[in-house]
């Protein structure tokens, strides 16, 4: 056997290899067994920041305003007064705003950005800032009493609105007429029902930095205020609270301010506000028998699971 005989054998072997691993895959569109080539990362996704939220145009200071005077009995028995001015443009804009029947979003009414400066100003006047922490409860109660003493009126009563007629966006639900008012509307109308009082009180307390929630019963709405171990020695009742996300929210009534004559011979009346946590003396049966649904003023979609777990990489060079 000569070398000239060996060459064709080797050439044949090479041809077989080339045909098997290059020509055939090329014709059949198969991947070569040399491994997938790295994909060139040319356009990896990038984070696109969201558009900023549009900020509302402030109402002009010199525009027409509704001026409302309030008079209420404070916790010390003294009578207090204050005046609230609300831009007419704000009031009319809110009157023209459609309402949402889902009570889960009613906290947004309490936190309306346009109402915020009005509520902050009013809250400061009802409870002026003090350096004495002992006065915290008294200040809180003064604000609660202020709201409780705003006259109650149902949503289906035209007298509940300054126009003397139902607003265009009242909702006709199975349970009856419903119209949750913005705090500014409640102040201009000077009256409202339970959810209006809870919304106004929630807005005022939030402006003072208190953590509050709406408490919804089958036929009533009240407010819950977060407190730690509220159990005043002088209370003749066990303060009612409800737990939400590990926090205690004590019941606060926004309406149902009981009024009674001072004596039989006079028309003068005296009010009896409801202190924090007192559900025993509330005349509404559902408050005494039901556990309310807790609705936070602020709702944010926050997932429980959000931790991305780093994965181990394959050891390079193995195969």
């Amino acid at each position: 056997m000569e070398w000239k005989d060996v060459v064709p054998v080797l050439a044949g072997a090479i041809i077989i290899l080339v045909v098997a691993f290059v020509v055939k895959p090329a014709f059949l569109g198969e991947q070569t067994p040399s491994g997938s080539e790295p994909v060139v990362v040319r356009n990896p996704p990038v984070y696109v920041p969201p558009d900023p939220v549009a900020t509302p145009t402030p109402y002009p200071d010199d525009g027409p305003v509704y001026t409302r005077s309030f008079r209420w009995t404070a916790i010390d028995g003294g009578v207090q007064t204050t005046v609230v001015r609300i831009p007419e443009a704000l009031f009319h804009e809110q009157r023209e705003t459609p309402r949402l029947s889902d009570y889960h979003i009613w906290g947004r009414y309490a936190l309306a950005d346009a109402d915020r400066p009005i509520l902050e100003d009013l809250a400061r006047r009802i409870v002026p800032p003090t350096a004495n922490p002992e006065e915290g409860y008294l200040r809180l109660m003064n604000l609660v009493f202020f709201v409780q003493q705003i006259p109650y009126d149902t949503d289906d009563n035209a007298a509940s609105y300054i126009e003397g007629a139902l607003p265009p966006h009242v909702m006709y639900l199975k349970s009856g007429v419903e119209y949750p008012k913005y705090p500014a509307e409640m102040l201009v109308d000077g009256r409202g029902d339970c959810e209006d009082a809870a919304i106004l009180m929630g807005g005022l307390l939030d402006a003072l930095g208190y953590d509050t929630v709406l408490l919804r019963y089958s036929d009533h709405m009240a407010l819950g205020i977060r407190m730690n171990e509220f159990n005043p020695y002088y209370a003749a009742y066990s303060p009612s609270y409800f737990e939400y996300k590990g926090k205690h929210y004590y019941y606060v009534e926004g309406t149902d301010f009981e009024v009674e004559n001072v004596s039989e011979n006079t028309t003068a009346v005296i009010g009896r506000p409801y202190p924090i946590g007192n559900t025993r003396d509330i005349s509404i049966p559902s408050v005494r028998t039901e556990t309310p649904e807790i609705i936070p003023l602020r709702y944010l979609p926050i997932p429980k699971e959000h931790y991305i777990r780093p994965a181990r990489l394959p050891v390079a060079g193995e195969g």
Partner: peptide
Amino acid sequence: SEERQVEVFRDHIAASEADLGQVS
């Protein structure tokens, strides 16, 4: 070929993990 395949796979996992790190 297999070593190369694992290397490429590893690079792609690493790139994915790096981007997921940004998301995280």
